[in-house]
Nucleic acid binder design. Structure first.
Length: 151
DNA sequence: AAATAGGCTTTAG
DNA sequence: ACTAAAGCCTATT
């Protein structure tokens, strides 16, 4: 498996990569969605995360859950800073997201002969955000608090 | 290098 | 129990 290019993330587990091999966390859906939105709001301008990254940071749920939470969100969050692992935003959002990237100076890779406005990719190696150790810890705590049934 | 196909998890309805 | 979801991975062109 390809080790994530860089970043002080915790050492990879044996099979951790296969989408969602973490123990079920069974968080309260509303709380989970809130946490996802919180993380999204934390991403600095010009930087991005993938759906899977957020799931890993929270150590809760999977990439698709993150996507669902965002799709249902009405809150004012920078949704365009959350991408699929391939560096492309969700289908249908690419065009709208692009103006944001231009605004924020996010690194884009556009093919020589683009098919359309939505034919581009964000260069994850450049634009990918990774939180500071302190932020990582805060996010880990946030994720841990999710799986704990509220008293 | 890029695009495609298949297989797979987690959670919600 | 089954299906759907703003996904991810690996193998194969």
């Amino acid at each position: 498996m390809r080790p994530r290019a860089d970043g002080p993330r915790q050492p990879p587990g044996p099979q951790e990569a296969a989408a969602g091999s973490r123990p079920a966390a069974r968080a309260d859906p509303a709380a989970y969605a809130g946490a996802v939105l919180d993380v999204t709001a934390m991403i600095p301008s010009g930087k991005v995360l993938t759906y899977g990254d957020i799931a890993e940071l929270l150590a809760c749920g999977g990439p698709r859950q993150v996507g669902r939470a965002l799709s249902l969100a009405t809150r004012d969050v920078p949704w365009w800073r959350v991408l699929r692992a391939g560096g492309r935003p969700a289908q249908g959002l690419a065009r709208e997201a692009r103006s944001r990237y231009d605004d924020e100076g996010t690194a884009l890779a556009v093919p020589a002969d683009p098919v359309g406005e939505d034919d581009y990719r964000v260069v994850l190696a450049e634009a990918r955000w990774w939180p500071s150790p302190a932020q990582q810890d805060a996010l880990a705590r946030l994720g841990a608090s999710l799986s704990r049934p509220a008293p």
